[in-house]
Design a protein around this nucleic acid. Structure first.
Lengths: 186, 186
DNA sequence: CTCATATGAGACAGTGAAGTCTCACTAGGA
DNA sequence: TCCTAGTGAGACTTCACTGTCTCATATGAG
């Protein structure tokens, strides 16, 4: 792994728990001199921006790999449901690695990133809308609300993992099950 | 409203979206001089601590008013369900007014606040556990996970409101319904 | 009116982090 | 061997924020 990637990885890990961690700490966590960090990222903002960009890349990638576009186009309930399960699983993994961007406004800072995040969310919502049309998801709530609620569950996973209340291997099924079936007894 | 309360309210509102907002911005948002803020709160940490304390107060108050202790003691499914609905509604209102700062390390900073937050969460979880025992909530997931997922939905509400995707008056029912029934079609 | 209290505005110094720069060292290729 | 690129360490400047202070002003009670 290149020095640049080492720094990025360390920064992602560190900033997830402390978004205000100074550059010196990030450098130390990466096992690198402070000057070296600045050789690869002109400013702190540059570093944050790059993390945000990568997070969005991963988000887009996960939707592509889950076959969101195809599932939406198919309008097939079984395919949509499978795509949904797949995508949720990928999101849980992503959130674990790229979790910072979840709640921190300092990461997705620029208007360009903001706009791209909105576009990705809109793409994600097309799946929810298709799922509603196909009878997979309920239609009495806004498709965008379903998107927000899944996002909220990803935040919940992070908190639960930090608190040690769930096992990492259970996270995916927990989110899928809670997102789809809720918490009420059957 | 006293100047002190004005500052606190402004700080809560501002710090909910930007926990690093400088004192000058907080003062400006409160329509007050920077020196005045320092007259009421010796340091920034004091201010944050007070916000954290008040938020936890409100949390505790909401659980008391919802009758959590009584519902748990009763073990009555109907009462527990009513208490749950009541509590969720209060939490949605609280989250709107007090921000979601309860997991932000910059707000809940001291070990004392941290400990109290843990205790309150534990108290909340007793309701989920009682609900599981009474057949109101599903028992195949950890009670603490249910707590985290509700918190996640509160985050979702905030985001959805900011994005303009839901109406404030729908928030309570949306959270109740999503928390209990999930997003799958019936 | 008089006075006490609270405030706004602004000046001030201290602090910590960001960013720049230099210099010496190391590894690897020509 | 020599040279180049990348690095660590550290000095240094700049800057934003914090916290303190002073002084003039407003407001309300007596």
């Amino acid at each position: 792994m290149s020095t640049r990637d080492t720094v990025l990885a360390a920064a992602q890990r560190l900033l997830a728990t402390d978004p205000t961690a100074p550059m010196a700490e990030i450098a130390a966590a990466a096992g690198v001199g402070r000057a070296t960090v600045h050789r690869h990222f002109a400013s702190r903002e540059d570093l944050l921006h790059e993390i945000g960009r990568r997070s969005l890349d991963r988000w887009a990638e996960s939707m592509t790999e889950a076959g969101v576009a195809g599932a939406v186009a198919s309008a097939d309930p079984a395919l949509i449901r499978a795509c949904l399960d797949d995508m949720i699983g990928r999101f849980v993994v992503d959130a674990d690695e790229y979790g910072i961007a979840l709640t921190d406004p300092t990461v997705v800072n620029g208007p360009a990133l903001r706009e791209r995040a909105d576009a990705l969310f809109a793409e994600e919502v097309t799946l929810y809308a298709a799922a509603q049309a196909a009878g997979v998801l309920r239609s009495d709530v806004a498709a965008r609300w379903l998107g927000h609620s899944l996002y909220g569950l990803l935040v919940a996973v992070r908190d639960a993992l930090v608190a040690g209340d769930i096992a990492a291997r259970d996270a995916q099924d927990l989110v899928r099950s809670t997102f789809l079936e809720g918490g009420a007894a059957r």
